[in-house]
Write a protein that binds this DNA or RNA. Structure first.
Ligand SMILES: [Mn+2]
Ligand SMILES: [Mn+2]
Ligand SMILES: [Zn+2]
Ligand SMILES: [Zn+2]
Lengths: 142, 142
DNA sequence: AAACTACATTATAATTATTCTAAACTATTG
DNA sequence: CAATAGTTTAGAATAATTATAATGTAGTTT
C-alpha cells in the first residue's frame, strides 16, 4: 500500500506533475497485490463507478499514455479491438484465458529460456514475449 | 500458382460460395511465394490500386472474416491499432520489425521448443506463440 | 431454362476506440 | 503573489470496423 507522497515522488521523478487526477489513477493502478492488466475502459469504469470520481476520459487516455511513455506502464497486444496495459513493466510472458479474456502473468521461471537460432541481419532483438492462449478443458463433458 | 478451379474447390469445401470477389481475393492472398501478412487496408489497396478492380470495402471485411472463421486465414495481434492477418494458418512465431512494421515468419526450428512448467487448472493450452521484436542495431553510430 | 432460395455484395449509416482542439485551470518557480 | 509551462476538459474529429437493408447472384428445383 503506497502512500500519496510516494506517488508524488514517483511522478516527479518521471517529470510528470502530480495532479490530483494522476494521483488518483496511481492509486487505482498501483495499490494492488498483483499486477493489473486493464483496458482504458476498465480503468475509466473503476474511476467513475467504484470511486465515483469525475475524471475526463481524455485525461484517462492522456495519463495512461504519459505513464506508458515514461515507462511506468507497459502496453501489450493480445487483441486488436482495444489496447491493454500492464502494471508489470518487465519483459514477461502471459497466459491469456480465452473464456474470460483475462491476462495472467507468467513468471520467468515458468517458461524455460527461449532460444532463438535465427537472426535478422542488421537488427537487434528488443524483446521476446510468449503468449499462451488457454481455454476451458471440456474433454470430459458427460 | 494456383488455378481458379482450385480456389473454387477450396471455397466450396469451406462451405463458401465462390463468387468473383472471393476468387479475386484468393488470388491476391494465396498466389504468392511466401506467407502474406496484411491489414485490411493493405489488401483493399492492392485490389483497387494494383488490380484496379472495384470490390466494396465491406466485402473485403466480410471476405477476410469469412476466411478467418473457416480457418483459411489467421488473425494475429501485434498492434492494437489495426488487425493483421496471416496466410500461414499454422501455429508459428514471428519477428516483428519495429522500424518497418513488417512481420516475418519464424520457422518452427528457428526456436527451440517452448517448455511451460506452469499450468492453469481446468484450462488447456490452445496455442503458444512467440513475438520477437527487432529493430535496427544502431550501437555503432559514430 | 425459368423460378426459387439462400447467401453475398454494396453503399451508406452507425458504432467504437482513440486522438485532436482550444479554452479554462493548476502546479511550480521566482 | 505573479508568471508560465504543463494539465484537464468537453466536445469535435478521425479511423477502424460493423450493421443495415436493398439489390444481386450462385446453386438448386421444377
Ligand atoms: Mn477485431
Ligand atoms: Mn494504440
Ligand atoms: Zn503482465
Ligand atoms: Zn505468420
Amino acid at each position: 500500500m503506497l502512500k500519496n507522497n510516494e506517488f508524488i515522488d514517483k511522478l516527479r521523478s518521471l517529470g510528470l506533475r502530480p495532479t490530483k487526477q494522476r494521483l488518483k489513477i496511481c492509486e487505482v493502478l498501483f495499490n494492488r497485490e498483483k499486477t493489473f492488466h486493464f483496458t482504458i475502459n476498465d480503468l475509466a469504469k473503476i474511476i467513475s463507478e467504484k470511486l465515483k470520481e469525475k475524471i475526463s476520459l481524455a485525461t484517462v487516455y492522456n495519463t495512461v499514455h504519459a505513464f506508458k511513455d515514461k515507462g511506468y506502464l507497459k502496453e501489450i497486444s493480445i487483441n486488436s479491438d482495444k489496447s491493454y496495459f500492464d502494471t508489470n513493466i518487465t519483459n514477461h510472458h502471459h497466459f491469456f484465458d480465452e473464456d474470460t479474456n483475462q491476462l495472467i502473468d507468467c513468471d520467468n521461471d515458468d517458461i524455460e529460456k527461449i532460444n532463438i537460432k535465427k537472426n535478422i541481419t542488421g537488427k537487434k532483438i528488443n524483446s521476446i514475449e510468449v503468449l499462451i492462449k488457454v481455454a476451458s478443458d471440456n474433454q470430459n463433458q458427460n
